[in-house]
């Protein structure tokens, strides 16, 4: 279970406060959507969960399965099962996709006291999972994300997620830059990972993604706090009324 308690976050280098007492609980087996206008703190929440530098937690805590993760390095969090699918995945010139996947997969397996995958086992697993995400295997021989289209980058993120078998998946604006076909492929990939042992946080500006990844709960994030929570129908309401009611201005 993910428990975010009264989380206050500011930028490390400036006095800008972004999260102002955010509280949220996501039990295992559930998918929660976080919707909000631009600048509400959605991406900050994603980065703070993953442990990116540059943010300072001034109050509150983040517990994953009862353990605080706020002092952990990003790689320790990954070993504990935290995975962030980036809104803008990084390009890593010179590192072949397969090398990257293998280094990452075996790094987390080692930390989870699982045996490292042999080359044939790894290849078989990657081929299988890549095919399901309609990722051309040849593409994985190319440097990570270099020259990939928006859709390819997002599918590559979901492939990494599938390989690392996280228990907490955070998807940051996964629908941005996707056409409807790519969106369906990505959503199918995410849905395939839904399960009783896995919690998911789906961050999105638009309701569209939630037609394909149907959430158990929807939360509205505005001005650094969860302003309203509800069922999946809340997303449809927002689609109609916009975020104006939560920010005092049209979004």
């Amino acid at each position: 279970m993910l428990e975010i308690k009264n989380l206050h976050v500011k930028l490390e280098d400036e006095d800008k406060v972004i999260l102002k007492g955010l509280s949220l609980t996501v039990p295992k087996g559930e998918v929660h959507a976080i919707m909000g206008p631009n600048g509400s703190g959605k991406s900050t929440l994603a980065y703070v969960l993953a442990g990116r530098d540059g943010y300072e937690i001034t109050d509150g805590d983040i517990l994953w399965n009862g353990e605080s993760i706020v002092e952990m390095e990003p790689d320790e969090r990954a070993a504990k099962g935290v995975f962030l699918a980036f809104q803008y995945p990084m390009e890593i010139p010179g590192v072949a996709g397969l090398t990257f996947l293998r280094t990452a997969t075996n790094a987390v397996r080692k930390k989870r006291d699982q045996a490292e995958l042999s080359t044939p086992d790894f290849m078989k697993l990657v081929k299988d999972k890549a095919a399901k995400l309609k990722i051309d295997y040849e593409m994985l021989k190319r440097p990570v994300n270099v020259g990939f289209s928006g859709g390819e980058k997002k599918r590559s993120e979901i492939l990494q997620m599938a390989m690392l078998e996280p228990s907490l998946c955070v998807l940051d604006e996964t629908d941005s830059g996707l056409d409807i076909d790519a969106l369906k492929v990505v959503a199918d990939g995410v849905n395939a990972l839904r399960g009783p042992e896995r919690a998911m946080v789906v961050i999105t500006h638009y309701q569209r993604l939630l037609n394909h990844i149907v959430p158990d709960k929807v939360h509205v994030l505005a001005d650094g706090r969860i302003q309203k929570s509800g069922g999946k129908e809340l997303a449809l309401e927002l689609e109609k009324s916009g975020y104006a009611g939560f920010t005092g201005k049209a979004a």
Binding site: A50, E73, A78, F86, G94, T103
Partner: peptide, 23 residues
């Protein structure tokens, strides 16, 4: 950070990135 978020320790990530730069 991207590498670390995938479970790769910082020191390993550094080596990977330096090697890839030369590669």
């Amino acid at each position: 950070f991207y590498c670390m978020s995938r479970g790769i320790p910082a020191a390993v990530a550094r080596v990977l990135l330096i090697e890839s730069f030369v590669a």
